[in-house]
Amino acid sequence: MLDIADELHRWCADGRPFAVATVAATGGSAPRQPGAALAVDGEGTAVGSVSGGCVEGAVYELCREVLAGDAPGTLLERFGYSDDDAFAVGLSCGGEIDVLVQRIDPAARPELAGALAAAAFREPAAVARIAAGPARLLGRALLVRRQGRPEGSLGDPLLDRTGAGEARAMLAAGRTGPVRIGADGGRCGVPVTLLVESSVPPPRMLVFGAIDFAAALARVGTFLGYRVTVCDARPVFATGRRFPEADEVVVDWPHRYLGAEARAGRIDPRTVVCVLTHDPRFDVPLLERALRLPVAYVGAMGSRRTHVQRLDRLREAGLAASDLARLRSPIGLDLGARTPEETALSIAAEIVAARGGGTGLPLTGAATPIHHDPPPASPRAGVPAV
């Protein structure tokens, strides 16, 4: 639902009731992940998508029925694929999705309107909705922010306490997905599935080295939804004019800037660090700090010979084998890239694979899944900033 928050927030501001269908759980090769949503207002206007086209028509009609009162105000529908009836509504990819369909009257559901407002204004917040469980609880919602008391209720004080804790944990990791707990707020008893959707600021891409490859990478990073920072200690090269696609250009020693950002709490497990300096004066002290931080990706440009020499220097600096194993160097996937734009694509592809749990191998002829579950959070989560 929060993936289409900009439009839904406008509907809420107009006091316009609407129905929203949200992917609550997936199985197999599902086309979209939990949190993807399709919403329909009273005039039949639709925004968003739950399947990329496979079941949009059926979900649209469910939304119309819920909005008109011809169906319960909240319901859960499962869509899959059956070889016995290949022409039935379903997913041609062979996957399976559970879709939570819910009527939302903004004035009556302030916790959901608040969640949409937070997402629209890029404020950190998470909303937990009961997507499966006792019928009396289905669709109940709880909104949590980084500070302050939760808003709304899941229907029981103990369930509220557990749900708020789970939502805050998902918010801290910037994740969206289902969480299974008990209806009594514990881990036993009648099962309840919470769909937790997180609204967080864009992840950061820190690009060190004000070179032409950095300019191309800044363009690709912006396209992928990152907030891009280019940092270099040389003011003649680190200028906004040379990097118009970057959100900010910083003149500072790379290791000093990274350390300051970490101490200020502006580095999180979604941050990616791309070191393009390939100069030991810059990249060794920078990588020494980056590899000790709970970030999603650390990559460094350079030849294989440079990489071996760099590893020796990092060992001398005290980094353990587990730290060095996190370093992607030479940076990027083997695409045969030569130009800055091709190299940026190579780096971006490796970042997407690393964050999404992909192999980086061609899908043609492979037995690997098309869609992957994201890998667990960095094992260094919670490590003090340096």
Rank of each mutant, 00 (worst) to 15 (best):
M1W: 13
A5V: 08
E7F: 12
L8Q: 04
C12R: 05
A13S: 07
P17I: 01
A21D: 01
T22K: 05
V23L: 02
A24G: 00
G28P: 08
G28K: 09
S29K: 08
A36T: 08
G42V: 06
A46S: 12
A46D: 07
S49C: 08
S49Y: 11
V50P: 05
E56C: 09
V59D: 02
V59Q: 07
L67K: 12
L67D: 07
G73K: 12
G80P: 13
S82P: 14
D83M: 15
E96I: 15
P106W: 09
P110K: 05
P110V: 01
A113S: 06
E123S: 08
R129W: 04
P134C: 00
A135M: 05
L142R: 01
R146Q: 02
G155W: 05
D156H: 12
G163S: 07
A164D: 08
L171I: 10
A173E: 04
G174I: 05
I181K: 06
G185W: 09
R187S: 08
L195E: 07
L206Y: 12
V207I: 13
F208L: 09
G209A: 03
A216R: 12
F223H: 14
G225C: 12
Y226T: 07
R227Q: 09
T229N: 08
C231D: 06
P235N: 03
V236M: 11
T239Q: 09
A246P: 13
V249M: 13
V251A: 10
G259L: 14
E261T: 13
A262M: 15
T271N: 10
V273G: 02
P280F: 02
P285G: 02
P285E: 02
R292L: 01
L293S: 03
P294C: 01
A296Y: 03
A296V: 03
M301W: 03
S303T: 10
H307V: 04
R310S: 03
A317Y: 14
L324E: 03
L327V: 06
P330H: 00
A349H: 10
E350Q: 09
E350S: 05
V352G: 01
H371E: 13
P374S: 13
S378L: 15
S378N: 15
S378A: 14
A385F: 09
